[in-house]
């Protein structure tokens, strides 16, 4: 630990690049995470360019092509690569448009849960005492319900629909963020730099959100990624039960619900393909989450 001056020339930009390079080094050590990230990026591109890529409209019904199997199967047609459903809609196009909904749900739910969770968690962890008790007991109550059941109850109260489903899921995810933020704030709060800021005259708000919070973000980012995939799953589950997005919305869970009657019939593609889409997307995001944890959590960093 020499007390010599680092040679000049290391500007802020190069420091940022070095941090990105270091992050990428740890992230890319996890092969699965890189594959997951590639798939996720692909999904985002598909969702953004859906009107250009999709061969048909998501709600266009081709009455002459009901339950056409995927191309390559007997009776399959090139215009319907992944086949059509019971009312003659192209499954590939619906899946492509469905990616938009899934990503939209993930982003909104995670954002709502993150913002609310951070706010409550920081307050609880910083002030402790009765404020902490009140917030945490409330979160314990939410945690005491099975999450999907609670979401169902909330949707039943608010009325079915995609927006209400998202609000319900965000509320169910809240406690995880609150607990995580609170724990991180509590451990950071006793660090010397926080006391130093206090001695410099920083008030409560500044200490909470400017000094402490930025140092608690790493676990929250990881949790946010995992919630993202959970949100997609739960939204699909609600959709499947008929309480989420309403038909004819090409949401993956709703598509599954529409295909319920074909589960045991020979028309496997109507059921399997939306299910696969959900599975692969959730898996990819979870892999990215694992990679993020490796790269961001210093405790798990190998030397």
């Amino acid at each position: 630990m020499a007390d010599t001056t680092v040679p000049g020339g290391t500007s802020t930009e190069s420091s940022l690049w070095r941090r990105i390079a270091e992050f990428w080094y740890y992230f890319s050590e996890n092969r699965g995470a890189v594959i997951g990230l590639c798939f996720f990026v692909l999904l985002v591109i598909i969702a953004l360019l859906a009107p250009l890529i999709a061969p048909h409209g998501p709600a266009d019904q081709y009455r002459d092509a009901v339950l056409v199997p995927p191309y390559g199967q007997e009776g399959g047609r090139l215009t319907f690569l992944l086949g059509t459903d019971a009312v003659g809609r192209d499954i590939l196009s619906r899946l492509i448009y469905g990616a938009r909904y899934s990503l939209f749900i993930g982003v909104i739910v995670t954002t709502i849960a993150l913002i609310g969770g951070i706010f409550l968690g920081v307050i609880a962890g910083y002030f402790r005492g009765w404020v902490d008790s009140a917030i945490m007991r409330l979160m314990d109550i939410i945690l005491a319900f099975p999450s999907l059941l609670l979401a169902l109850v909330l949707v039943a109260v608010l009325g079915p629909g995609l927006v209400n489903a998202m609000i319900a899921i965000a509320l169910v995810f809240q406690p995880h963020f609150v607990r995580l933020t609170r724990a991180a704030v509590m451990s950071e709060k006793t660090r010397d730099y926080v006391i130093a800021a206090k001695v410099s005259g920083a008030g409560h708000l500044r200490l909470m959100f400017k000094t402490i919070l930025p140092n608690c973000m790493a676990p929250l980012i990881v949790q946010a990624t995992l919630s993202f995939s959970n949100a997609i799953l739960d939204a699909a589950a609600l959709g499947f039960l008929g309480y989420g997005a309403q038909p004819p919305t090409p949401e993956w869970g709703t598509m599954l619900a529409d295909a319920r009657e074909f589960i045991s019939s020979g028309h496997w593609w109507v059921v399997t393909l939306p299910g696969l889409a959900i599975l692969i997307t959730v898996l990819a995001i979870n892999l990215v989450g694992d990679g993020l944890r490796d790269a961001l959590d210093p405790k798990l960093k190998r030397s």
Partner: peptide
């Protein structure tokens, strides 16, 4: 005050300029 552990007493997310400017900004 100056603390014992120089690794814990500076906010890792704050540039040196902000570290030094903060007491002036607040007081």
């Amino acid at each position: 005050i100056i603390f014992q552990n120089p690794y814990g007493s500076l906010n890792p997310r704050q540039k040196i300029g902000e570290v030094l400017g903060e007491p002036l900004l607040l007081n």
